[in-house]
Computed example of a mutant assay.
Amino acid sequence: MDETEELIELCVRTLVSQMIPAPGVELHVTRRCVLGLTDEPAADFNRLILGADPQGEGFLVRAAALAKARGRPLVATMSPRAADTLAPVATRLGFAPVGAAPLMVLRAGTPVEPGRPMKVVPALGPELAQVAGDLIASAFDTPRDVIARCIDVCMTPTAGVETYIAWGDDGPMCTVSVTPTGDTGAISLMATPPEHQRKGAGRALLSHVIDDYRRRGMTRFHLGATEAGRPLYESLGFEVVADLPVWLLTAEA
């Protein structure tokens, strides 16, 4: 199996861990495909991941039908191999290409320079979950009640998603989540509100978290980057494995 498809399988597991606690969530999963629908009308909270799966075309058709039945927009991310065969199907179903997401990996042995000294704490307990949720809502300009329903609920000791907060002199500055699967960790929800950006907080937090997990035996990390975040990840040693095509099905499609 090539590395991209292996990482797609891990992305499937990560999305399940992230979405399953949300109220009203509907999940459909195969080895390399996952559909997660919520009651939220925003596309970011209705997700489809498609790898090179023998059931991929049927899964895509059913996913589009389910999203349309619920009146929900849907963001679909495909592996390049999946897109080779599924792009015409996606177009027929009403999906439109909206860009690509770099799939990035930090490999074992790649040195990570530490950032500025900061206090880093796990977001456990209602009060710290609220702090992390506030940072995420501000960073992504998303209504706080939506973050509470879809993300705060995952910040529990048994959720499988581990969230951390970096504190500066003026209080909490940024947050990041890690979903461990064996010796590999999925990095997600790297969130720094605008007023705290360009101060080194994100780098400090991520380098601290990576170092801590490495001491506990984790050897590899992966993430889906935005173009805005890509320079930070590259400066820490992450490499692009593949550019994953991203498609959008609007609620009106």
Rank of each mutant, 00 (worst) to 15 (best):
G182V: 02
D2E: 12
V89Y: 09
V34D: 02
A76F: 08
L135P: 00
M104V: 01
L103T: 04
L86S: 03
D211W: 15
I187N: 02
T250H: 10
L93Q: 01
Q130T: 13
F45D: 03
D84L: 14
R215M: 07
K199P: 03
T250L: 13
G168D: 10
P111W: 09
I151N: 10
E6K: 11
R216I: 14
A201N: 01
L223Y: 06
G202M: 02
D53K: 05
R31K: 12
M19K: 12
L128T: 05
A83V: 01
R116K: 11
V16N: 04
V98D: 05
V241L: 12
R203A: 12
P97R: 08
P180S: 06
Y164C: 07
F95K: 03
L223R: 01
D2V: 02
L93W: 01
A90E: 09
G99F: 15
L128C: 03
S207E: 00
E127A: 14
V240W: 07
T175N: 06
G217L: 10
L205P: 00
A83C: 10
P172A: 13
E57Y: 01
V178H: 06
A76E: 04
P23L: 11
W167P: 04
V246L: 13
G94C: 11
A242W: 06
R203G: 13
A251R: 15
Q55T: 10
G51E: 04
G217M: 07
L27A: 04
V178Y: 11
T226E: 03
W167V: 10
D44M: 14
R216A: 15
S79P: 04
T179G: 03
P157N: 09
L205I: 15
A228S: 15
P157D: 05
V89H: 01
E3R: 14
E195Y: 11
T179E: 09
Q55N: 02
E195L: 13
L86A: 08
A132L: 03
A148T: 15
P21D: 05
A83Q: 06
R13L: 14
D39S: 11
L15I: 09
P88L: 06
I136K: 10
C174L: 09
G229H: 03
A69K: 14
V131H: 13
P193Q: 04
I187R: 05
A139E: 01
E234A: 01
A43G: 07
I187H: 00
R32N: 00
R149Y: 06
R70D: 01
E252D: 14
G200P: 06
F140V: 12
F45Y: 14
P41K: 11
S138W: 06
R149Q: 10
G115P: 14
G58K: 04
A43R: 09
P180W: 08
P73Q: 05
G202R: 04
A108G: 07
V161S: 14
E26M: 09
D53A: 08
R81I: 11
L7N: 00
K68H: 01
T77K: 08
A123M: 06
D53Q: 07
L7R: 03
M155P: 02
A101V: 08
T77C: 12
S17N: 12
G24Y: 07
D84M: 15
L27Q: 02
R13P: 01
T77P: 03
W247C: 03
V120D: 00
P172G: 11
T91H: 13
V61M: 09
M104D: 02
